Simulated scan of single mutants.
Amino acid sequence: MAQPENDLGAGQHEPHGGALGPRLNWLRAAVLGANDGLVSTAGLVMGVAGATTSRSALLTAGLAGLLAGSLSMAVGEYVSVSSQRDSERAALRLEQRELAEEPEAELAELAGLYEAKGLPPELAREVAERLTEHDPLAAHADAELKIDPDELTSAWQAAFASFASFTVGALFPLLAVLLLPTDARAPGTAATVLCVLLLTGFLSARLGGAPPGRAVLRNVIGGGLAMAVTYGVGELLGAAGV
Results as ranks from 00 to 15, higher is better:
residue 81 V to K: 08
residue 145 L to Q: 15
residue 165 S to G: 00
residue 226 A to I: 09
residue 87 S to N: 10
residue 102 E to H: 14
residue 103 P to V: 02
residue 161 A to H: 02
residue 202 F to N: 02
residue 109 E to N: 05
residue 168 V to H: 05
residue 88 E to Q: 15
residue 43 G to A: 12
residue 110 L to I: 04
residue 101 E to M: 07
residue 227 M to T: 08
residue 111 A to N: 03
residue 112 G to K: 01
residue 140 H to N: 15
residue 3 Q to K: 13
residue 37 G to T: 03
residue 207 L to Q: 10
residue 214 R to H: 15
residue 22 P to Y: 02
residue 147 I to Q: 04
residue 49 A to F: 00
residue 50 G to I: 04
residue 72 S to R: 09
residue 18 G to E: 12
residue 95 E to L: 15
residue 30 A to R: 00
residue 110 L to F: 03
residue 56 S to E: 14
residue 28 R to E: 02
residue 121 P to W: 07
residue 149 P to N: 07
residue 174 L to W: 05
residue 150 D to G: 06
residue 242 V to G: 01
residue 160 F to R: 04
residue 118 G to D: 01
residue 203 L to A: 14
residue 241 G to H: 10
residue 233 V to N: 07
residue 202 F to P: 01
residue 237 L to Y: 02
residue 165 S to F: 00
residue 12 Q to K: 01
residue 45 V to T: 08
residue 205 A to G: 11
residue 232 G to L: 05
residue 98 E to T: 08
residue 169 G to K: 01
residue 211 P to K: 12
residue 91 A to L: 14
residue 242 V to I: 13
residue 241 G to N: 08
residue 69 G to V: 09
residue 97 R to G: 07
residue 216 V to P: 07
residue 96 Q to D: 14
residue 105 A to S: 14
residue 198 L to G: 13
residue 57 A to L: 12
residue 119 L to C: 02
residue 106 E to L: 01
residue 174 L to Y: 06
residue 66 L to W: 12
residue 163 F to V: 00
residue 213 G to I: 03
residue 152 L to N: 02
residue 83 S to W: 03
residue 114 Y to P: 02
residue 106 E to S: 05
residue 164 A to C: 06
residue 83 S to M: 14
residue 186 A to C: 01
residue 221 I to G: 06
residue 241 G to M: 08
residue 113 L to T: 13
residue 69 G to S: 10
residue 23 R to V: 05
residue 43 G to N: 06
residue 31 V to G: 00
residue 129 E to R: 14
residue 121 P to I: 06
residue 229 V to H: 05
residue 167 T to I: 08
residue 32 L to V: 03
residue 138 A to E: 07
residue 86 D to Y: 06
residue 65 G to P: 08
residue 72 S to H: 09
